[in-house]
């Protein structure tokens, strides 16, 4: 059978994978192996439904329903001592099962424990804001909204944060190309010169490795430069470039100098 490849993910793929390659997993431990974590999980599981919980690389990962995110984090903050939210964001699994994975990374300073609360959310649904619990979520949730388009309910100021306000598309989605989409290539042209100038200017080329060989001011192949202002409508003229002699090393002269010294 052929392997299933998600079609709407434009993330770079490995160009070759061995047929017999088995993907190993990072080892996980049961929560009961850690005293503090198991106690905290007990408190949590008495009030919210836990979908899965395990310890990976020394940190507990708890999966819950997305409706419970505020409640679960409130319990972790008030009853388990997780005073700080280090990070929150999302992972795009739309191509696989149509969901986002939203994660909250919490830190307990007294017991030096870190826990990651994870919930799956379908596209189009919203998560509840945790800004009343952690003010750090203010910027982090805005960033998540900006990058993935996940709406956060009851956020005090849900607005794009990194991309411009009038941007279209959410850059960290797997469907968003690395070099930007059609909208991105016209954004600056439209903004600065207006839509009428599109034909005259052309789309912005966002390929960082692109070399315009007719661009005599910045990039061109050495020795193949086209003089500035030359008419290139009928192809490249065969004009040899004259280099300044100031910076060129005269090898013959230097060789004779060397021999003289000998």
């Amino acid at each position: 059978m052929r392997k299933y490849v998600p079609k709407d993910s434009v993330q770079k793929k490995a160009y070759y994978t061995d047929r017999f390659h088995v993907v190993p997993s990072v080892p996980t431990q049961d929560v009961s192996t850690d005293e503090i974590f198991s106690k905290q999980l007990e408190i949590l599981s008495s009030k919210v439904e836990i979908k899965s919980a395990y310890i990976q690389v020394g940190q507990m990962r708890v999966e819950i329903n997305h409706q419970d995110n505020y409640k679960a984090i409130e319990i972790l903050k008030n009853e388990c001592g997780y005073e700080m939210m280090s990070e929150m964001s999302a992972v795009d699994y739309l191509a696989k099962d149509g969901t986002f994975e939203v994660f909250y990374q919490l830190l307990n300073l007294k017991e030096r424990k870190r826990v990651r609360v994870v919930c799956r959310i379908e596209q189009g649904l919203a998560v509840e804001s945790i800004v009343p619990l952690y003010k750090a979520a203010n910027f982090a949730e805005r960033e998540m909204f900006d990058m993935f388009g996940i709406v956060v309910n009851n956020h005090p100021f849900l607005k794009r944060i990194i991309m411009p306000d009038d941007w279209e598309g959410h850059p960290l989605l797997k469907t968003y190309p690395l070099q930007g989409d059609e909208f991105a290539s016209w954004y600056e042209v439209d903004k600065i010169f207006g839509k009428d100038a599109r034909e005259a200017i052309g789309p912005e080329n966002r390929d960082p490795a692109r070399i315009d060989r007719y661009d005599t001011k910045r990039f061109s192949r050495v020795g193949r430069e086209v003089p500035f202002g030359a008419d290139i409508s009928n192809g490249e003229p065969e004009t040899p470039i004259e280099y300044s002699t100031t910076f060129l090393v005269d090898y013959n002269a230097s060789q004779t100098q060397l021999e003289d010294r000998k």
Partner: peptide
């Protein structure tokens, strides 16, 4: 390129500015 095992990790370090972590 290397293929690390399947899984997730968040590692905090103390950078001069504060907690610099990579998930």
């Amino acid at each position: 390129g290397m293929r690390p095992p399947k899984g997730e990790v968040y590692v905090p370090t103390e950078s001069p500015k504060g907690e610099l972590g990579f998930y």
